[in-house]
Amino acid sequence: MSTSPASETVTQHYQQGDLRRRIDEALDRLYPGGHPLTTDHLRAVDEFHVGGHTVTRLLAEHLELRPGMRVLDAGSGLGARPAIWLSARIPMSLAWI
């Protein structure tokens, strides 16, 4: 069974070695002196799905999330940015993996 070119590209992306170190180095270049980071700074690397943050917002609207709900973000990514973005807007019990 062969894999698709897209699957191979994703595999190569995540097998490049110490991803955390490379992200830290890039952030140090962008924000020398320890500029305080927010989840918005990580949007490009943490919402690594088709549609990015736009789809995160649309999905949140579609789900009609309300305060007090329990939410699980499965496959949340490097820093769980979508989950953190949601919880900053709607008080909820949130878990991510």
Rank of each mutant, 00 (worst) to 15 (best):
Arg70His: 10
Pro67Gln: 09
Val71Met: 08
Gly68Arg: 06
Ser76His: 03
Thr54Lys: 07
Met69Ala: 14
Gly51Ile: 13
Pro67His: 10
Ser87His: 11
Leu78Ile: 05
Glu47Thr: 02
Gly79Trp: 15
Phe48Cys: 01
Arg70Cys: 09
Arg81Glu: 10
Ala60Tyr: 08
Arg43Tyr: 13
Leu78Trp: 03
Met69His: 15
Leu78Tyr: 07
Gly75Ile: 11
Arg57Asp: 09
Ser87Arg: 15
Asp73Pro: 00
Val55Leu: 04
Glu47Leu: 07
Asp46Gln: 14
Gly75Val: 08
Ala60Cys: 13
His53Val: 08
Arg70Ile: 12
Gly51Trp: 13
Val55Thr: 01
Val45His: 05
Ile84Val: 15
Pro82Glu: 11
Gly79Thr: 13
His62Leu: 13
Ala44Gly: 01
Val55Cys: 02
Ala60Asp: 02
Arg81Met: 13
Ser87Lys: 09
Gly52Tyr: 02
Phe48Pro: 00
Val55Trp: 00
Glu47Gly: 00
Val45Trp: 04
Gly77Glu: 02
Ile84Asp: 04
Ser87Cys: 08
Ser76Asn: 02
Asp46Thr: 13
Val71Gly: 01
Leu59Asn: 02
Asp73Ile: 06
Gly79Asp: 12
Gly75Asp: 10
Gly52Leu: 06
Asp73Leu: 09
Arg81Ile: 11
Gly51Ser: 08
Ala44Trp: 04
Trp85Gly: 01
Gly77Asn: 00
Met69Leu: 11
Ala88Gly: 08
Leu58Met: 13
Ala88Asn: 10
Glu47Tyr: 00
Ala80Pro: 01
Glu64Pro: 03
